[in-house]
Design a protein around this nucleic acid. Structure first.
Lengths: 188, 188
DNA sequence: TTCTAGATTGGACATGTGTCCAGTCAGGTG
DNA sequence: CACCTGACTGGACACATGTCCAATCTAGAA
């Protein structure tokens, strides 16, 4: 039995996974997602590659987990603003700012989420659900489902384009302001 | 000097590249983009891997070229419809139908276009430009730039979600009808 | 202290990826 | 005909990826 009161949290496994996450972020910033390998992350975290692979099925899985955690840090925030337009813009601006603050992670996660890897597929759904929730909350109760879907799709599209380098994450915030306004126009 | 009047078109190189494209499509349908390798495509086309690599820098480059050609087949079509909404829906429906008809190619191209490969980056811009053109033509002259961008982003987002398997390409057509209507509402 | 279960490890393995290069081949040229 | 040139080829290379397993370590339980 574990001696720790909080089940599992203080376990050896939990400590190791934390070290791997931290090493992953550092490695991402320093060498980018192209050059990063699970082995390099393992080495930075001071564990063997075999150990790292017991935690992450693949490089893509690692990126997806890192992104999910990054997203979750911000999950409790309630969108601010007087009307739906302002609240939705608060959501997109906030996301864009956070992504701009971690460009390496943002660049890594876009291709990673497309992986057919089973662990990635699970996280992908969670992440998609989180986006949907945020927009739904910003819109309020009686929102037009087509409008909600338009927002989610436009946001996904912006993520994709930024991920491909067609626009920067800083641009993304501003451009989405206009796009959100255009979509919501006539949908009081 | 070449004996062929149409410069290069009848050259050996052009014939080989055609065979490689054809083999690539067959291989995609039969084994999917995961299992496909440049070597397997080369073998199917009856050329050596080394030869195939003189035409395509990577698997992703092959997918991007295949998709670009598939897109170009349809480039001259003028969007039909009385008003902007109908014309834009014609564009999205048409694309969705074509993608649904070649699911393996569609599944392959989404991750491929995210590659940092230089040849892919070139095609990515061309493909993005093509989408923009089609929506711009469907909207007509004096379109709101924010609306145009909203449409392109929503469409990109739909491609991404379908590419991830969150929706089918058949769904995509129907869902985009509603999304397009919602975006254009109030933008006569 | 001894035992035990879970965590970690080294290292080999099979596979894929893209590069490179010296050599061959075929068809048009002079 | 002999010659060239562009296309193609075989095969080796360096590297990354993810898997596997028997051996070892370590901290808490008895």
């Amino acid at each position: 039995m574990s001696t720790s009161p909080r089940q599992g949290l203080g376990s050896k496994r939990a400590e190791t996974v934390e070290r791997l996450f931290a090493a992953g972020l550092e490695e991402l910033d320093e060498v980018g997602h192209g050059a990063l390998t699970i082995r390099s992350v393992a080495s930075r975290a001071g564990v063997s590659p075999a150990t790292a692979y017991t935690y992450f099925a693949s490089k893509n899985h690692l990126f997806a987990e890192l992104f999910w955690r990054y997203l979750a840090e911000d999950a409790d925030h309630d969108p601010q603003g007087a009307d739906a337009v302002a609240r939705v813009q608060d959501v997109t601006r906030r996301m864009a700012e956070r992504l701009a603050a971690s460009p390496a992670l943002a660049a890594a996660v876009t291709p990673a989420l497309l992986s057919s890897d089973a662990d990635v597929a699970r996280l992908r759904l969670r992440i998609g659900g989180e986006f949907l929730d945020r927009f739904a909350r910003a819109l309020g109760e009686q929102a037009d489902p087509a409008v909600l879907e338009a927002l989610v799709l436009a946001f996904s599209g912006a993520l994709l384009q930024a991920g491909m380098g067609v626009m920067t994450y800083t641009d993304m915030g501003e451009r989405l302001d206009a796009v959100v306004a255009a979509i919501l126009e006539g949908h009081a």
